[in-house]
Structures are given as C-alpha cells and as structure tokens.
Design a protein around this nucleic acid. Structure first.
Lengths: 128, 128, 128, 128
DNA sequence: GTGGTCTAGACCACT
DNA sequence: GTGGTCTAGACCACG
C-alpha cells in the first residue's frame, strides 16, 4: 500500500503524510479505519520507526487520525472533510501556477483538456 | 524589484531563483539584460553575498544566465525558451494536483473559471 | 582515499568531484555505495564542510550520487553509465587536442604507443 | 581573425593567448610577423584594453612574442619551437585522459580512427 | 548522527 | 568594480 522514495528530496515522513491524505481523499481509508502500526509500516518500508512516528504525529496534529494507545491509530470521523477544506485553500496557489503557464505559451485549451481528462476518469471511477 | 521572506520554509536562494525566472517569463528581464550584481542584491536584500551567489550559480547551471567574471551576470539568449520548456514539463505534475482537487469536491466549473480569469488578465496585459 | 591539492588552480571542490568520478569509473565506488559523510571528508582533508558540501551537491546535480538527509550520500544506480556517456561526449575535445599535437611534430606512432600502453595496463588490471 | 566567447568560463585573456598559440603552431603567424596592436584588437573584439594587454604580457612572458615600444608586438624567432616543446610536455596529461576513456568503454580502435582522421587531414593541408 | 542553509568575512582572478 | 572560492562556525530538518 504505502511506498516511499528515499532518493526524493521530499522528506520520507512527508511522503507518508501525503500518501495517507491521498488514501483518505480517494476513499481507500475512511472514518474509523485503522492504519498500519508504526512497527508494521517501518518494517515493511525499511524505515526508522522514528520517521513513521513523525508522520503519524503530523497526521494527528492535523486532526486526520487519532491514536488509541495500545490499540493503534484510526482515521477520524471528519478527516475527509478537513482535507477537502485544505485543498480548497490551495486554489490560490494554483492561480499563480496557472499564471506562469499562461506566460509559457501553454494554451487555454490545453488546460481545459487536462481538466476534462482528469474529471472524466474520476467519473468513470465513481461508477465502479 | 527582488524581495525575499527569510521566515519562509523555502530557502532564500531558491526564492531568488524563482523570482528571476518569473522576471524572465514575464518579460521584465530579457536576453542580454544584466541582472543585479551579487553585492548589489545581497545589500538590498540584507543577505550574505554567498546566498545570492548560490542562487546565481543555480540560474547559470540551468542556462538562464551566464556570468562574466569582472563584468556581471546576464540573461542568456534562449532563457525564455528554456523556461517555457520547463513549465511545459511541469504539466504532468499539474495533472496529479487536479486529480486531488477533483476528489475534494471542487467542481470542474470552478477550475474553468479560474483559468478564464488568469487568461483574461493575461490578454489585457498583452494589449498594453 | 581522497586527496586534494589546495595550491592547485583547479578549485578544491572540483577536485573532489573529479576524484569521485574516477572512483566510480574505476569501480572503487559502485551503485548503492555510501560515500564519506561531509563531516568525515572535510575532517580528513582538513577542509571546511561547505567545500565538501559544494562538491557533493555538484555530484548530486549530475545524477551521480543522491543524498538522503539524515543518512548520507550514495552512488546512484546508473552513475557509471552517466559517466561513460559524459566521457564519450568529450571525444570531440580530444580531436582538437590531437590536431595541435599533430602540428607540434608529434608523430602518429608516438600516440599509437601511448594508447597501447594505457590499454595494455587496463587489460592487466582486468585479469586481476 | 581573433574571436572570443564571453560566455565561456575560460578567461577572455586566456582565449587570446590560446588563439595566438594556435596561429603560430598552424603557421598563420610566423617569426617576425606583427600581431595586432592592443588598441586594434581590443576595439575589434569590444574588449577592455587591459584584457588584451594581459594576454600579450603572458605571450611575452612565454617568449612567444616581443614588444617593440612604439612599433608593436612581433612573433619571436623560436616561438614555434617553444610551442612544440610545450605540447610535448602535455603528453603526460593526455595519458591520464586516455586512461579514463579506456574505463568508459571507448574502444582502442575508436582512438586509432580519431588519430588517423586528424593526421590524414593534416597531411592534406600540407600538400596545399 | 546526517545533509542543507545561512551568515560573516577573507582572498583571488578577471575586466 | 565584478564573480568565484574558501574558511569558520551557526542553526535547522531529517532519520
């Protein structure tokens, strides 16, 4: 399920955070689901337990998981809602990005096409 | 012209690189133009010359500027072209980003509107 | 293993880069190997950590090593291949060099002999 | 005749020195010939006279030219001989270069071919 | 412990 | 004056 790239310049713990978020957003992990334990994950990814611990602490801080001592970590009830809010907040950053693309000769239509492509696939997945 | 945020998590030298790229892309700096000297910029931004130097070296490495020791640093002939190519290459990353937005309940129409807004402004600037 | 000449006109950090390349090409360092840490190397060569850091960053940039913050720097999987390609690209420069030698009265046969000498030694090493 | 590349990382004055050497070696400039004056060359190359002056000083130092105050600079009688001696001394450096090529999978035969190619052309030029 | 960034200030070569 | 390199030493994030 999880996989990290140690060669990437993005910190390993952040990769775990991002992947967990992706899992929640895409519905692979839903409210109440238990995520792997620190030991399990650190073993399967050959990582230092501290690294995994740090990732989980960050997810906890953002209110996406809660830890039940002795039992494990679980997705919070409103994890998905929190993430959707976060993403909406990132729209501003997207605007700046689009501005630079517009100055790079990328045509409006290319972006339209890209959006359509992503949303079509999304639609298809929902049917499943 | 230049301005940096030392509190940001993104390295100062990288901020300088990004801003220079933005200047090139937007036409503020064009082929042959001299950019500020290391000393000028480090003084005006209250930075250590080494930090600015590091930024310039990175720009040189990417082929966006060339440095003529004893004279200064200048925008290369095809700097803009290189940047446009770079941005085009980043379209793939945008796709993943859009995928996450689509899963966050952001409507296709919101993205269309954002694009239109950016490209309209662009059009206006071109008229000037 | 490493050794630098601070009196040389070629920058120390570049000497480190070149030596590392040589180690990779000769098989002393192979894919996955960890190279000395910044602190180790700077201490053993009596250099400032920054100088070594600069060398490693350059190697990283060329795709010959990757740095895993908190762990160390390692030879990339295709480092050797990249180097072999680089050297092949330098053949053009060799041609100009040979042209000047030919105009300096150096006989063709002297160059043949030099090549044979190098390739004979190479052959000998392969046997070991 | 002369031409410099300000974008190169090799110093401009050194480019002038190298080109002059090349002219001597190839017979374009021979003993007693007058080379351009500092003013002429700095004007035609759009360079600072100091830069040209520095190049000429270096050529003088190496015994390749001598300056007759008020008249100009001239190629010395044994300039060509000095250069041929210099090139011969550089054969050692070539050996190390060849060693690296041999470790890069470049075949002996490729080098033979390169030499033949250069020496054939040389031969042809001599006929003219 | 690791690498990455930054400051402070020096020296050099080049123009 | 310019950029390029280096030392000395600090602080941070990461594992």
């Amino acid at each position: 399920m999880y996989q990290v790239d140690v060669m990437s310049r993005v910190p390993v713990y952040e990769q775990i955070v991002e992947q967990t978020k992706k899992f929640i957003l895409s519905g692979i992990l839903t409210a109440g689901d238990q995520i792997p334990t620190v030991r399990q994950l650190s073993a399967s990814l050959s990582l230092n337990p501290n690294t995994v611990q740090k990732a989980f602490k960050e997810l906890d801080r953002q209110g996406l998981i809660y830890s039940a001592p002795g039992k494990g970590c679980f997705i919070t009830a409103n994890a998905r809602g929190i993430l959707q809010q976060q993403k909406r907040g990132e729209l501003a950053a997207l605007e700046e990005q689009l501005r630079q693309l517009s100055m790079s000769g990328i045509k409006k239509e290319e972006l339209y096409a890209l959006i359509d492509q992503v949303y079509e696939k999304e639609k298809g997945e929902k049917k499943v």
